[in-house]
Design a protein around this nucleic acid. Structure first.
Lengths: 158, 158
DNA sequence: CGACAATAATTGCTTTGTATAACTATATCC
DNA sequence: GGATATAGTTATACAAAGCAATTATTGTCG
């Protein structure tokens, strides 16, 4: 989830196309997700930005002052791992941390100008990625897709 | 992807509900997928069966004689890792391997009776999982969801 | 008030998944 | 028939994620 540049397996040689696939939603969800991750790495190649980094920066941008624990829970990662990710973002001067005024145990996270700039500069790639992933789907389908994904999340307890 | 029993983070304490979420499809895809995995582990607790194991067994059941490489490509895992998963399934007498008659480099994979039995015995759990995940969605929505996921896979090159 | 439990975050360490490289065996292609 | 490609394996390295223990602060309640 964090900071690695991942190489890709070789292009497919065997014919995967005519394998009979299981009819389980989790299976198809996972395949779609793996593909999307792969396309993310292609799209963001050279930037050093991973899905995790982009996600956390986006969340901090849209939720200034959010705490690490809240992000960790949302993304379902353990706190120690979130701590390290957050620290690396801070080391890169992409975010700043301040002790929360109302609770001095907590850290108040906000984007730095550099962090905001980075996201701005990556916006085009992100748009391209969205287009690549959803390109063949119309507005109604996209809306239903989002609704289904939100529902799945709601259906399953944390 | 292989054979571990994973513990879960503590229940949510902070209020994750009112975080502003990014509007990227990959993000929501991932969250839904993570939840589904979690529910899988809950549903299959005590069986020692992981998503990867269940998936590979299902694929072999529905594609008798399939090769390891084909499965590896479909699931986007590297061959060495697939080798080990396959070996562990064979060690558990869930599948059998024979040298392919037409290509003696390849291994011809089929389910054993024990493997088939295992899948049969897990079928109820799988049904329960599907119901839990998709419970709130009607038939039309499920159909659209599957279509969208298939399309995403088709839109993104291997 | 003061002791005790709970929470936010951190550090250190371990486990596990996945990748890479190197190798064997077989097949294919001029 | 020799170069090249493919199916699979083994050994190994590394990064992601987990767990345990610790610090600091806050909340609870006798």
């Amino acid at each position: 989830m964090v900071k690695t540049l991942v190489a890709f397996p070789e292009p497919a040689e065997a014919d995967v196309a005519d394998i009979v696939l299981p009819d389980y939603i989790g299976f198809h969800l996972r395949l779609a997700q793996l593909r999307t991750f792969r396309e993310f790495f292609r799209t963001f190649e050279g930037t050093g930005v991973t899905p995790g980094v982009h996600t956390v920066l986006s969340i901090i941008r849209d939720n200034p002052g959010i705490r690490q624990r809240a992000i960790a829970e949302l993304l379902m990662v353990r706190e120690p791992n979130m701590t390290r990710l957050i620290q690396s973002l801070q080391a890169g001067h992409l975010i700043s941390r301040a002790v929360d005024k109302t609770d001095r145990r907590a850290r108040h996270l906000v984007l730095t100008d550099k962090g905001r700039e980075l996201l701005d500069n990556l916006a085009q790639r992100m748009t391209a990625l969205e287009k690549k992933v959803l390109g063949s789907l119309d507005a109604a389908q996209r809306k239903t897709l989002r609704h289904c994904l939100d529902q799945i999340r709601a259906n399953i307890p944390y």
